[in-house]
Amino acid sequence: MSARVSTRISTTARQFTLALVACLAVAGGAALAVSGDSEGSSAPQVRLADDNWPVPTKAPGH
């Protein structure tokens, strides 16, 4: 193998390793952000609207 091919292979391997480390760092950060605190998943849900809507109204004169 020539020195040029050897250098090209090592450069490609280094770039692949750097890309892999960057992807793992992003995935690890996303996993930490999602897991955050587990209390949020068991928190009670707040109801913002009543279940009895829409209420039909009668038109005037009917």
Rank of each mutant, 00 (worst) to 15 (best):
G28F: 10
V46M: 02
A19K: 10
G28E: 05
D37E: 08
V46Q: 06
V34R: 08
L24D: 12
H62D: 13
N52M: 10
P56H: 00
T57D: 00
A43W: 05
K58M: 12
S35V: 09
A49K: 13
Q45M: 01
S10T: 05
D37H: 08
D51S: 10
S6V: 02
W53K: 05
V21L: 15
E39I: 04
W53I: 15
A25C: 13
G29D: 05
T17A: 15
R4W: 01
P56Y: 01
A25V: 14
L20W: 04
V5G: 00
V5N: 10
V46T: 06
A33F: 13
H62I: 14
S42F: 05
R14W: 00
A43T: 04
R4H: 02
G36N: 08
L24Q: 14
G61K: 07
P60D: 12
A30L: 13
H62R: 09
V21C: 12
T7I: 07
P54R: 02
I9V: 14
A13Q: 12
A49S: 12
D37G: 10
G61F: 15
T11W: 01
P54I: 04
A3D: 07
S42H: 05
H62S: 14
P60A: 15
R4V: 06
A59Q: 10
L32F: 07
A25F: 14
Q15A: 13
G40T: 06
A3V: 14
D37Y: 05
N52E: 14
A25K: 00
M1L: 09
A31Y: 02
I9L: 09
A59N: 01
C23A: 15
A13L: 15
V26Y: 11
T7N: 01
H62G: 14
S35G: 02
E39T: 05
V21Q: 11
L32D: 02
L48G: 08
A59S: 08
S38Q: 04
A3K: 02
G36R: 03
I9Q: 05
E39F: 04
P60C: 03
A33S: 12
G61A: 14
A13R: 10
S10A: 06
L48H: 08
E39R: 05
S2H: 00
D37L: 08
A59M: 08
P54W: 03
A31S: 06
P56D: 04
S41P: 00
P44L: 05
E39S: 03
L20P: 00
W53A: 06
A30G: 09
L48S: 06
A19Y: 11
S10F: 00
A27G: 09
G40Q: 03
A49P: 03
C23T: 15
L20H: 10
P54N: 00
A25Y: 08
A33Q: 11
L18D: 07
A43H: 03
K58D: 12
D50P: 12
A59E: 11
P56A: 05
L20C: 14
S42D: 07
A30E: 06
Q15P: 00
L32R: 10
G36L: 06
L20N: 12
A3L: 04
S38H: 01
T57K: 00
A13P: 02
A22I: 15
N52T: 14
A3N: 07
R47V: 08
C23V: 15
R4E: 01
G28N: 11
A27E: 10
S42V: 09
A33I: 09
V46C: 01
S42R: 04
P44G: 02
Q15M: 12
G40Y: 11
M1I: 08
V34P: 01
N52L: 14
S6C: 06
L20Q: 12
